[in-house]
Design a protein around this nucleic acid. Structure first.
Lengths: 351, 351
DNA sequence: GTGAAAGCGCTAACAA
DNA sequence: TTGTTAGCGCTTTCAC
């Protein structure tokens, strides 16, 4: 590396001593000014800011992180950025983080534990101050890598036995119960459930909540009407196909997520069935697209904003106030039914 | 800050001297080993790696960036992460970047120049080694902030007069010509174009390419059949509505992007019109969802992978070999027609 | 081939 | 209130 003789040469990007020199103060004063220390006189502060403006200077975050030990970076790992549920989540998370002066690092695990490990490793290298693991997956065991580094974490639907880890619980039950009751009130008795992949915590929880809601509504569950799909549109098409092959068919289908429901809509259309006249369909998530399906999808809304806010809050608390004993360690995000056009009373004769 | 007396106390995260101490070598040797310097004997190298493994150590990237001047971070700014086109792009870009040892910083400009400025500023603070501005917008003028910092950049469809800036051109013309010819061959003469917002370079280019293709095909353009929409599904619905109010209606509609086309599909359905029997529809982008619309959308594919690769290549070249005089400064990404179910010969009598 | 030592740009203790 | 200075963890001369 070329050393600058007495730092004179070259018009490099300005650094703190460039500013100090121009403002005719010490670098400490510049640092204090930038960081809003009250111990700087107005006079000097003004000179410093003028110099900063003139040079279009801003601090080197790497140097800052190095000395302060705080990177002001938060990591967020989602299952798959290509799944429309997640970009909205990321967007909310970013907005909140940036508003609080944090930067974010985004990664997708793609449901693969090895990939998750790599993501975590990369984030650790970048010295993130916390990681939100919103994969809803089954790969969380590898997270002990994070635990040993003593990094704040927040997981969706997974509890880690670590003082630095918080959990976000999703209250699917409320939304699912509302959906089942909505269907029941419409007159449906034969309700199917197209579940998500059982390796996902979220899928299991949703399925269990469905069973509970059915029982509470006094409705019987046909074993054949609960089918494991994969949370994709294709999976929904396939799931609907299986339902169609059955001797007795459900009059309503509750899906573990919207993509599945959209697949059902599509498959029903291909079969010449009308939604909701011939069969009612309910989704879960309320992705932006749900409003624009044909017919518009009745679905259980899971607020991305609320989820992102909970994740950020959990991380911020741990990062900024790590020794607070009465820290909130569990967060609950609610769900609610959004009734649109894909549900109606079953046809008189049933199917 | 608490100084460690002769660095003895506390089981902190291991640093380079922890490793050096355990391996009984100097920190220089550790550094060399990690960075694959050939000037380290096998014997010491082995000891170092063992110590690294034992401590589960990895370097602090901030310290590394500070001293080396290279952050190994690339920025990517998209228009809106919520638009399904972009997550796929981001995913590809991330994959390539990570494979080459880079981290990425993602931001959305939301088509707002002020937001773009903030994004750029944040990325500059994090000392990115390059930024891909894939907003396809009209906010690029604010980019001189980047220019003055002498940071490599790559822009989509925008040329900046800076030796550090490259441009990715999208060859829409080929795909659009193929689409128009496909329609013409099917027997369509009355082809409408639902354009994107004219503030977007991409929208203007697409519209111009449409006009050129029509002319080349010997087809007349009805002024009223070229309508400015906004690249959203809602916009497509509205655009189709305007077309329907016209005394003479087109038999085919080419849309500036897939979301618009999906809106048209939806609006047509609501009006009781069948696609493609009553009206043919063509999109542009080939988002994942296009395959699953009803009917599956014929569209002009714009490869996100190819785009991401071009963006990364442009940045990497500039970052790693900044003085190469014969650097590639312009990249061309191709498009191609994907024929699916939303196009067919027009009804005998026309509409 | 290896180590000692000089910083990268910044913050924070300490002195004045 | 302000300045001087010692590092943060690392890479990279330079001398051995």
């Amino acid at each position: 590396m070329v050393r600058k003789g007495k730092r004179k040469a070259a018009a490099k990007t300005p650094d703190i001593r460039t500013v100090a020199a121009l403002a005719k103060v010490s670098i400490a004063t510049v640092s204090r000014t930038i960081n809003g220390s009250p111990a700087v006189s107005d006079c000097l502060s003004k000179r410093v800011w003028r110099a900063i403006g003139q040079l279009n200077y801003f601090p080197n975050t790497h140097a800052r992180s190095l000395v302060s030990g705080r990177s002001r970076i938060l990591g967020i790992i989602v299952e798959n950025i290509t799944n429309p549920f997640f970009p909205e989540l990321i967007q909310s998370f970013e907005e909140i983080a940036v508003a609080h002066g944090y930067e974010i690092l985004v990664s997708s695990s793609n449901g693969d534990a090895a990939v998750l490990t790599t993501c975590v490793r990369r984030m650790l290298e970048r010295k993130v101050e916390g990681v939100a693991v919103l994969t809803f997956g089954g790969e969380e065991p590898v997270l002990d890598r994070l635990m040993h580094r003593n990094i704040p974490m927040v997981l969706a639907e997974f509890k880690l036995d670590d003082p630095k880890a918080s959990t976000i619980l999703l209250d699917y039950a409320t939304g699912i119960r509302a959906a089942v009751n909505h269907l029941a009130k419409l007159g449906h008795r034969k309700i199917a459930f197209l579940a998500g992949p059982r390796k996902l915590h979220s899928a299991i929880t949703r399925e269990n909540d469905f069973r509970a809601a059915m029982e509470a509504a006094g409705l019987a569950i046909q074993k054949k009407w609960v089918i494991e799909c994969d949370h994709t549109l294709k999976g929904g098409v396939a799931g609907f196909g299986k339902l169609q092959e059955l001797p007795t068919r459900p009059s309503a289908i509750l899906c573990s997520n919207d993509m599945t429901a959209i697949g059902v809509l599509r498959a029903a259309y291909m079969e010449g069935l009308r939604v909701p006249q011939d069969v009612s369909v309910v989704g879960l998530d309320d992705i932006a697209f749900a409003e624009y399906t044909l017919p518009p999808l009745t679905t259980i809304r899971l607020s991305r904003t609320e989820l992102a806010r909970a994740a950020f809050e959990a991380l911020r608390q741990q990062a900024e106030d790590p020794i607070n004993p009465r820290m909130q360690r569990e967060f609950l995000v609610s769900t609610s039914l959004v009734v649109r056009g894909s549900t109606a009373a079953p046809a008189a004769g049933g199917r």
